[in-house]
Nucleic acid binder design. Structure first.
Lengths: 141, 141
DNA sequence: GTTTAGATTGAGACTAAATCTCATAGAGGA
DNA sequence: TCCTCTATGAGATTTAGTCTCAATCTAAAC
């Protein structure tokens, strides 16, 4: 059994929730997509596969996945939320091209350390962070 | 005449647009609020002052203000966009408390420099960036 | 195997943010 | 003044996301 299912099930247990057929379908779909995804995309892909799950359940389950830490929300400058799986991926942030929409991932340990320092200074307990740099990618500038 | 009006008017000129009564009212309102604001807040404040401007015009003008560089959008983890004026403020980013909603501003030259370096590496031309650190503030942790 | 309490779901109503439409009004140049 | 283009408001529309509630499922207790 894949690791992310195990983690999800363990998380659900702690909340007295069950790993249902629908939740498993959504988890599978989420982890089958590499990169950034939208709630509605999950809904439509499942529909196409004739594995209908209601929109409400998709949103509910994505919430659970975020809470479990397997997935996180990212804001990419559009008018709706994107999700990405964090499990199996090292943490990273984003360069977002405001012309073609391309998203380039990057990560920088030094920036993370500086952020931690800032939190310390304000006695702020960091749970997560996102960095987005908006601009023009090398093909669009 | 205040500097931000001048800048806005100059920007509008370059687009062959006019600084109308409504646009001025919205600009004034935006710059009278210190901190983060929402589109609807502007709409309601103007309504209260009996300076009715339609919602459509508020949204349209906020868009222009963002394009002009006087204002920027920020994502604070809620389900709608916030705005803040950049003119007259040094650039900063945000610590967002996920319990009480408080937003603490910070800025760090070292982080900015590292971000610039990352953009260089990808030949990415930065226009703007936002950093949000989500977690618990010192009163909520 | 029954019972039972609580979890889960889907369908569709609902909400809220934001955008669009379009008729009317206004502004500015020739 | 005329003409073109800009601007606005009212309200319809769109879209993401949430909520409701009746019906169903689950799992533990008996």
């Amino acid at each position: 059994m894949r690791k992310e299912i195990e983690i999800f099930e363990r998380y659900l247990k702690t909340k007295n929730l069950n790993l249902t057929k629908e939740r498993k379908l959504i988890l599978d779909q989420v982890f089958s997509i590499d990169g950034h995804l939208e709630a509605d995309e999950i809904f439509l892909r499942l529909k196409k596969d004739k594995k209908d799950v209601s929109r409400a359940t998709v949103y509910r389950t994505l919430g659970l996945l975020v809470d479990s830490g397997l997935v996180r929300k990212v804001y990419l400058g559009e008018d709706h939320i994107h999700y990405e799986h964090t499990f199996g991926h090292t943490h990273h942030d984003h360069l977002v091209c405001i012309k073609c929409g391309k998203v380039i991932e990057f990560s920088d340990k030094k920036i993370e350390r500086l952020q931690a320092k800032i939190c310390q200074k304000s006695r702020f307990q960091e749970i997560s962070h996102t960095v987005q740099i908006f601009g023009y990618c090398k093909d669009c500038r």
